[in-house]
C-alpha cells in the first residue's frame, strides 16, 4: 500500500518540491482561502490557472493521479446534477434576477444564472482539488511538521503530524496482514457476496487486533522519544529544515498578493456587501 499513497515520503526534485516547507504551506493556505471565500470568476479563474501551473510544474505521473481525478470529476458532475434536480433555480436565488431560456418540464427551467452558478461551484471545487494535489505531491511529512513549527504551531502538534504520517505505512501494512490472516481463516470480504452491515461487522473484527497491536507500541515509542530528550525545551530545531532561497521569496510574494486580494474581497464583498445583493459576481 506504500506505493498507492499519493503523498510522498521522499523529497522531490522539481522547483515547488524543493521549496521550504512553510512556503508550500502558506502557498496552499492562501490559495485555498481565496478559492473558498470567493465566488468571483475574475479571482477564481486566475487562481485556478495558477494552481494548474503549480501542478504541471511538479510533473505528476498521470498513472498516479488518474484514478483520483476521474473520481473527483465524476463525483462533482453528479453533485452538480443533483443540485440542479433539488433546486433548479439555485443560481437565480444566489444572483438575484432571472432570465429563463427554456423550460424542460415542470419547475425545471434552464436559466443562465443557474448554469453560471453551477459552473462557479465546479470551478471552486476543481481549483481546490488541483491545489490539494500539487501540495500533496510536493510535501513530505517532515516538511509539513517543520513548516507548521515555523508558523508558531506548538511542536507537540507538529510531532503529531509528522509522526502520524510517518507511521501510516506501518499501520496499513499491519492492517493488510491482519486482514489476510482473517481471510485465511475464512472471513469473506468480497463486496459482491456480503451485505453492507455484515461488512461493517467484519471491519470491526479486523479493527480489534489492529487497535491493540498498534497502541501496544505507544509506550515503547514514547520511551524511545523521552530517552532522547523529547520535550526538554520550549523550542526545538529541525534537521529537515530548508533555509528559504530566492525561489521561496518569489513564491512568498505570490502568497502576499493572494492574501491582499483575500483581505480586500473579505472587506468589500463579505462585510460591506449591501443587504440583498448576492455574493456571486455575475457579468450580465
Amino acid at each position: 500500500m506504500e506505493n498507492s499513497f499519493v503523498i510522498s515520503y521522499l523529497p522531490g526534485q522539481h522547483l515547488i518540491q524543493k521549496l521550504n516547507g512553510t512556503t508550500k504551506l502558506l502557498l496552499l493556505v492562501s490559495s485555498l482561502s481565496l478559492i473558498m471565500i470567493s465566488f468571483d470568476i475574475r479571482i477564481l479563474i486566475p487562481t485556478f490557472a495558477l494552481n494548474i501551473i503549480f501542478l504541471i510544474s511538479v510533473k505528476p505521473k498521470w498513472r498516479q493521479i488518474r484514478g483520483i481525478t476521474y473520481f473527483i470529476v465524476f463525483m462533482n458532475l453528479f453533485n452538480i446534477l443533483l443540485m440542479y434536480l433539488v433546486s433548479p433555480t439555485i443560481g437565480v436565488s444566489e444572483i438575484g434576477h432571472s432570465d429563463v431560456w427554456f423550460s424542460i418540464i415542470g419547475r425545471y427551467v434552464v436559466t443562465p444564472e443557474t448554469l453560471f452558478y453551477l459552473s462557479v461551484r465546479l470551478l471552486k471545487i476543481f481549483s481546490m482539488f488541483i491545489a490539494s494535489l500539487w501540495f500533496v505531491l510536493s510535501i513530505t511529512p517532515s516538511e509539513l511538521g517543520v513548516g507548521l513549527y515555523r508558523l508558531h504551531v506548538p511542536y507537540k502538534i507538529c510531532t503529531v503530524v509528522s509522526l502520524g504520517l510517518r507511521s501510516i505505512p506501518d499501520i496499513s501494512r499491519n492492517y493488510r496482514e491482519i486482514k489476510n490472516s482473517l481471510q485465511m481463516r475464512g472471513l469473506e470480504l468480497d463486496k459482491k457476496r456480503v451485505s453492507v452491515f455484515k461488512r461493517l461487522k467484519q471491519s470491526v473484527t479486523i479493527l480489534i487486533p489492529l487497535l491493540l497491536s498498534t497502541f501496544e507500541r505507544v509506550d515503547v515509542i514514547a520511551s524511545a522519544m523521552d530517552l532522547r530528550l523529547y520535550g526538554i525545551g520550549k523550542k526545538r530545531s529541525y534537521y529537515s529544515y530548508k533555509k528559504p532561497t530566492r525561489n521561496d521569496q518569489f513564491f512568498r510574494l505570490i502568497v502576499i498578493i493572494q492574501l491582499i486580494v483575500f483581505a480586500i474581497y473579505l472587506v468589500v464583498v463579505v462585510f460591506l456587501r449591501p443587504a440583498g445583493a448576492g455574493r456571486v459576481w455575475y457579468p450580465w
Partner: peptide, 21 residues
C-alpha cells in the same frame, strides 16, 4: 521499528539534537 521516530536515517539520528534545539 518503534524507536525509529524520524522519517529518514538522518532525521532519526538527529532526533536528540533536534530536541536540544
Amino acid at each position: 521499528d518503534a524507536q525509529f521516530v524520524g522519517l529518514s536515517v538522518g532525521e532519526d539520528i538527529a532526533f536528540y539534537l533536534e530536541n536540544k534545539n
